[in-house]
Design a protein around this nucleic acid. Structure first.
Lengths: 147, 147
DNA sequence: TAGCAACAGTTGTTATAGCAACTATTTTGC
DNA sequence: GCAAAATAGTTGCTATAACAACTGTTGCTA
């Protein structure tokens, strides 16, 4: 039978590619003693870019559940990479930002990440990137939020 | 800054799309009382197609870790959807196959899955599917297995 | 302004992901 | 033929994912 989007598990290839990427990143982090996981890195990168943010914003920016953010942040705080700061005006809110160690970590890991992105995209073009973006965005928007 | 594959998290969009797909599938399964998870479904589907297979083969076919397969199969056996059968010649091997209930489950869920694939792919063409496949395969093959 | 809804975040539970270490077999190499 | 290596699968552990239920705070409104 022909391999079409109907008979082929629609997210099987997505899943396989993502897993291989994630494993590659993690193994590279481990072999360079970066002492960080892929998802912890994603939060550190986001906190570096936004300087000061909340759990909710992080969740939106990273497509992660807020409970997942809560637990990853807990690990990052324990590692001394992130510090929490209560909002003066809204006592429900907690601002998160990198500590100096967190900023160091970002700078240590960043070049490796840059290299890995180039490796993954080797022999592909910016046009391919645009195609991938278009198709994934279309699928994303095709999916109902409510069932 | 322009959104290119270098500055944009290379798997962020993959991750976001896959999560939304997975959540959509799971919510549909739940709302139809299918009593199954997405990954359990993937194994059931694979077992339906291959009739009789081993943990190792399932792991290869689904891009899952063999430990993950082992645990999902344990749940499926408890649910009565899969049965284990020892190999007569190689006592390390265990063959897995759907029980009659497992086959029923496959037939009950299958039409829903078919619908969801159409929904996700709505307004996209087979050419788009080929493009997506080409790009993801290229990325997949770009990633070193050893670091 | 009292009561309630909405919001920010945490904790409990179950499932998937993957590494390391383990048991139990089978195959290989000398 | 026998020890070592390879193979099949399980178990322990830590991390991520997501739903439900919870605490505490703020905003809304009758």
């Amino acid at each position: 039978m022909a391999d079409t989007f109907i008979n082929n598990p629609s997210f099987f290839k997505l899943d396989a590619t993502l897993k291989k990427l994630r494993n590659y990143w993690q193994k590279m982090f481990d072999s360079r003693q970066m002492d960080i996981t892929v998802d912890q890195w994603l939060l550190v990168e986001n906190l570096y870019k936004h300087k000061k943010t909340t759990h909710n914003e992080l969740a939106r920016n990273t497509s992660k559940d807020i409970t997942t953010i809560s637990r990853i942040i807990e690990l990052l705080v324990k590692k001394g990479l992130v510090k929490r700061e209560a909002d003066t005006y809204d006592r429900r809110k907690i601002y998160l930002q990198l500590t100096p160690d967190g900023t160091e970590k970002y700078k240590a890991v960043k070049p490796l990440v840059h290299e890995m992105r180039k490796t993954g995209w080797k022999s592909l073009t910016e046009a391919d990137y645009a195609e991938l973006t278009r198709i994934l965005d279309t699928i994303y928007n095709n999916i109902p939020t409510k069932v």
